[in-house]
Simulated assay, not measured.
Amino acid sequence: MTLTQLAYLVALADSRSFTRAADAVGVAQPTLSRQLRVLEDEFGAALVERGGREGVTLTPAGEVVLPLARRMLADADRARTGVAELIGLRSGRVRVGGTPSLCIGVLADVLRVFHEQHPDVRLELVESGSQPLVRSLVRGELDVALVIVPTAGIDTALHTTPVLRERLSVASPASDRAPTTRASLTIHELARRPLIVPRQGYDVREATLQAYADAGETPRFAVEGGEMDAVLRLVEAGTGVAVVPDLVFAGRPRLRRTVLTPALYRTVALARRADLAPTHAMQAFRDTLLSFLADLSAGDNLPGDVQVLRRPDPLPG
């Protein structure tokens, strides 16, 4: 069994076609087919169903091997990257994940600062919900990610460092009249207003709908779906209101923030795989993130009700 053969299996599972898989890995189709046969002989079982109407599909044995193959390939890639850092062939790579609201609210600035400090480190960014990010971390497709905790699957597989606690508040157009004469809104009052929520998979969407359910209310949806940027633009345009994390209010004068009562909070953590030691580049990213958040907190530049939970480690001596 070789890593190359496992890479061929992964490409085949992703493309469902021998032709497309061969193109993806840059070999001739007969070569890919021959190596896959060798791999099947090694396992003593067929890994793919050939000639089906829906293209190539995995057999039950193939479904067992596939996640292990993805993980082995990711671990091998990490090993190459780590050794390359140590011997000075290149300065490393960090694959970073973040939820859309965190990408808007803090991660974009952190990546800018990190790139200024480490211009030779290659940065790759993935924007998604916490559960998909957790799965990508476990499969080795990401190095670190900012996720909302608790999240399913995070307890045993990942090491997490809580870094932020932020409140969820109601966003409404600053050009309109305030949604209440008081400084806060209840869910019962919010339920009388048209609501904008992001697409499924957003942590803030689930928290909002759960708050409605707990209060025995049914949302009056104005718009469902879209990314966080679209949600904020719809609010600014006066289409409705939205429940959003306090971090996104920074630099958006066209939004009015009104707090919810009872308060809704969420905790943000920096997560990585627990069974792997961080590379030098990953450690540098962590240090940059914590220093950036500490500077924001010290300068009173955090919007709304946002608290920094973890400070940078003190310098030795």
Rank of each mutant, 00 (worst) to 15 (best):
A211G: 02
A274D: 12
A284D: 14
D143C: 00
S175R: 12
V235G: 02
L290H: 10
R266A: 07
A284H: 12
G92M: 00
D229E: 15
E54Y: 13
G240A: 04
A271Q: 09
R135G: 14
R122M: 09
D295I: 05
R192A: 15
G201C: 02
L6G: 01
E227Q: 13
D23V: 14
M282G: 08
A269V: 07
L39F: 08
F249A: 07
P67E: 08
P312Y: 05
G105E: 03
F292K: 05
G44A: 02
A191K: 06
D41Q: 15
L234W: 12
L158C: 14
G317V: 05
S297P: 03
P316G: 09
T59F: 07
I148F: 07
L58H: 07
L290S: 05
L6C: 01
L123A: 05
I154D: 14
F285S: 03
L234S: 13
L190D: 05
L39N: 04
A178G: 08
R177D: 13
L195K: 04
L315G: 10
A274G: 14
E141P: 00
D229H: 15
V231D: 03
A21M: 09
E189I: 04
E224G: 12
L209P: 01
P132Q: 10
R272I: 08
V106W: 10
Q117N: 12
L290T: 12
A298S: 14
F221I: 15
G129D: 06
V231I: 09
R122L: 13
A157G: 11
I187L: 11
A211V: 03
H159L: 11
G55N: 05
A250V: 02
A277E: 15
G238R: 04
L293H: 07
P253G: 01
P198D: 07
R233M: 11
T261N: 12
L142I: 03
A28T: 13
A7C: 03
Y265E: 15
A157H: 11
P173R: 00
A76L: 00
R266S: 08
T267D: 10
R34W: 12
A13N: 04
R165P: 04
D41M: 10
T81K: 04
S17V: 02
V83M: 11
L276I: 14
L232Y: 02
T181E: 14
G240R: 01
A84S: 00
E54V: 06
R70W: 04
A79R: 09
D287M: 01
L260K: 09
R254S: 14
R165N: 10
R165G: 10
R50T: 13
P194A: 06
L270E: 01
I196H: 04
R95T: 00
A211Q: 01
Q117P: 05
A157N: 11
M72T: 10
V243E: 02
S169T: 08
V243K: 03
L264N: 06
A22H: 08
D77A: 15
G304M: 09
D155Y: 12
L264Q: 12
V27N: 04
G82W: 00
L296G: 09
R78N: 02
S169E: 05
R256Y: 05
G238F: 03
L290A: 09
V25F: 06
A21K: 05
A230L: 13
S175D: 07
A76T: 00
E85W: 00
R286P: 02
G201R: 01
V113P: 03
L260F: 08
G26L: 06
V134F: 04
A230N: 10
P162V: 10
E124V: 15
R272K: 11
